[in-house]
């Protein structure tokens, strides 16, 4: 930690790595994967922190990197699944890591509802509703127009409510 950039990186890591980890855990659903992707994300941040020009909030810039890392991982996993027997494995009834972490039934059901949506909807809900990024920041992270963010958020919310309703009477209490 001898130079200016390393010191700056340390501060950035302390401040934002937990939030990035949370974001990646919501996207991937696995603690180990989220930790690995957090490492990959901050490795890229470490190497390119001097290139951050301040056009956006640094957290927005980091989440954009994290999102690219996660998308790469998901694509890789999809390719692997195509050639493996994993796709035939029946999903376990055990609670997901998020369920264990949050330990709240309603929150757990909400998470399951989000995860059952298509990736576009998951991403926009995680960023807009959970991480509370603005429309502009979300557009920047996802590489979309602001109007697309608005429309997709609206559609994602509708799809989520529909999914939660479908999942049972208990959901009525939430929505």
């Amino acid at each position: 930690m001898s130079d200016h950039y390393s010191i700056r990186f340390q501060k950035v890591y302390e401040e934002y790595s937990d939030k990035v980890y949370g974001y990646l855990l919501l996207l991937t659903g696995k603690k180990e994967v989220a930790e690995d992707l957090t490492q990959e994300t901050f490795l890229r941040v470490y190497k390119h922190i001097h290139q951050f020009n301040g056009d956006s909030q640094i957290f927005t810039w980091i989440v954009k990197i994290a999102r690219n890392v996660a998308i790469d991982h998901l694509r890789r996993r999809r390719r692997l699944r195509f050639f493996s027997l994993d796709k035939y494995v029946i999903e376990s009834c055990q609670p997901s890591p998020v369920e264990i972490i949050v330990k709240g039934e309603k929150t757990s059901l909400l998470y399951k509802g989000i995860k059952s949506l298509k990736l576009n909807y998951q991403e926009v809900l995680i960023l807009r509703k959970i991480k509370e990024f603005s429309i502009k920041e979300t557009a920047l992270i996802l590489g979309w127009s602001e109007s697309k963010v608005k429309i997709t958020t609206s559609r994602a919310m509708a799809a989520l409510k529909k999914e939660l309703k479908r999942r049972g009477e208990i959901i009525e209490e939430i929505i």
């Binding site: 790595s17 949050v102 909400l110 959970i130 509370e132």
Partner: peptide, 25 residues
């Protein structure tokens, strides 16, 4: 619903793992 969204934002992380990741980077 908004409250449930916010509760999903607060996900704890192992401090040891956080340090390990930092050192690796």
């Amino acid at each position: 619903l908004e409250d449930s969204f916010k509760s999903l934002s607060q996900i704890p992380r192992s401090e040891i793992q956080k340090r390990k990741t930092y050192n690796s980077i």
